[in-house]
Design a protein around this nucleic acid. Sequence first.
DNA 1: TATAAACCGAACCAAGATGGTACTGTTTGC
DNA 2: GCAAACAGTACCATCTTGGTTCGGTTTATA
Lengths: 157, 157
Amino acid sequence: MLKISRVTDYGLLAAVYLARKHGEVVAAREVAEFYHLPVPMITKVLKALNHGGMVNSHRGVGGGYSFDSDAESVTLGQLLDVLEGPWDLVECETFDEEGHAICSIRVACPSRRFMFGINRAIKGAFEQITLGDLVRGSLPVPVIDKSRLIRRTAETN
Amino acid sequence: MLKISRVTDYGLLAAVYLARKHGEVVAAREVAEFYHLPVPMITKVLKALNHGGMVNSHRGVGGGYSFDSDAESVTLGQLLDVLEGPWDLVECETFDEEGHAICSIRVACPSRRFMFGINRAIKGAFEQITLGDLVRGSLPVPVIDKSRLIRRTAETN
DNA sequence: TATAAACCGAACCAAGATGGTACTGTTTGC
DNA sequence: GCAAACAGTACCATCTTGGTTCGGTTTATA
């Protein structure tokens, strides 16, 4: 299931705020007050971003968080992975504790082929939007390149 | 909040099934059995699709649902609208019964500008994927039309 | 070295969403 | 008139979401 929940939105807001003040150490309180959002909520998403390696944390007095890498090399897809966890449409193949597939269809499941296609399409779009785009606030509209049809039989994910 | 929930997936599956048998009247039972999904679940999404004008319903003995329009002119965005309802990231401006905005920031909300951009980008991508693409099972990769090249590290996906 | 600013991390909880189901009614072909 | 099939609504257990709380740790600074 793909979702961009409200907490994820907060995370994107926080990431943008830090990216704007590139390299600068900013307390969670400041971010929260800027957006008029509760401090614990913002600290929560900042922890997640830090845990995912997107931002750095600085403890102690005068501490906070900072974004030190290149905003152009961080994609929206990466941010969503960190904030929401990896996702997939129709988890056809979930596995039980013993590693056996639970899917009731399994053989020649008719949905997998095209659901995988949707996955690729959406993920591809997310991968091409960078944090820099978010900071600039104006995004290009993604365009489907229909001339580059992909027909692969054995996808490895 | 953007989400593609499991029920929405079922809806997409059902739509694809009907589109494959273009014009043919198919009972909900048949679709459900094909995907090994509970009949009431499939009828639920088929009702939604019918309500949204995506498919036609035929009552009485020998009835069912049929897809009669052009699969190339139905977009994934339209299907998602029908199945999940319209969505937006960060509903900055929700209104109470008297029509007054609830948003606590309102003036010069820093998030609206770029969140709107994300909305446009994602919706644009969904609008360019047609039901026909889903039926074929192989999707074109969405490409962001940027004048400036983006730096990409090793693709892991 | 005492203090306070700030992050860490885990647990907790009410409220809402999700996924399924059930039941009664209506249309219609045979 | 019977039964197949859709229509509509309401229901419910369970999971998720959004948000809070609390005790602990790190560290600049007075």
